[in-house]
Write a protein that binds this DNA or RNA. Sequence first.
DNA 1: GCCCAGGTATAAA
DNA 2: TTTATACATGGG
Length: 276
Amino acid sequence: MQRLSQGAHLRLLLPKTELDLAVTFDCGQCFRFLPQPNGEFLGVAHGRILRLKQTETEILLYDMTEQEFLDCWQAWFDLSTGYADILAALTRSDETLQKAVAFSPGIHILRQEPFEALVSFLISQNNNIPRIRSSIERLCERFGKALDGAYAFPDPQTLAGCQVSDLAGLGLGYRDEYLLDCARRIATGSLPLEDCFTLPLEQARALLRTIRGVGPKVADCVLLFGFHRMDAFPIDTWMKKILAAAYPQGLPPEFLQYGGLAQQYLFRYARWGSRS
DNA sequence: GCCCAGGTATAAA
DNA sequence: TTTATACATGGG
């Protein structure tokens, strides 16, 4: 992938079929990156505002040095993973997945920050995406560092110092206690969250499920989106239907390694692709 | 008003 | 071990 500095901006020569920002941001893995009326994308991660524009052949990152890209955003966008090979393996003998990938190619699993992923998917339970977004945004406005026109995601330490009453008005509902519980345990160091990068899948799941409000679905979302564990496989209400219809004899073996990526494609296809 | 939303904790069978 | 129910809250 070629990189070109253009004034204060950085241009990536990268076909949209390889990384499609609209699809990647909209497939339910992240909640803070939204398309703007002018066609650009705006979001916040790693304590900075990211402004982007994509064409069929390139991505423009505004106010980005090459060094900053290499230090942080190359990894965040997961541009070093060989998606072509993974998708080839996944779709080799799977017609359902072939259709799903053909419908909207270019999904990457972003390497989001673990704490942000954990909090986001704690909030996501029994909730809908617009409401999840607004809750997260208000949480950042109230407790995150002010940036130029947006707010960073708050630290565990900041949230650990809160009371339930401090969270009123964010729309968290009963999930407010879950959030405080996990922020406190992380802030005190009693929950070694970073271990989820290296622990065997089942042990990482077990660790996350010691957090109140983290069940099987949320745990796998956190592993997939916060720790880039493509062997995690979040099963939600949609996936239950999809799996019953498409894989009555059980999951293809490739899903053991890359089920998380397969899940993203299947989820999107089921929701938006198979309408009449 | 009623139903639902990328579920989970809890109690009961 | 599997199956029901409550859960806060806003949008359709």
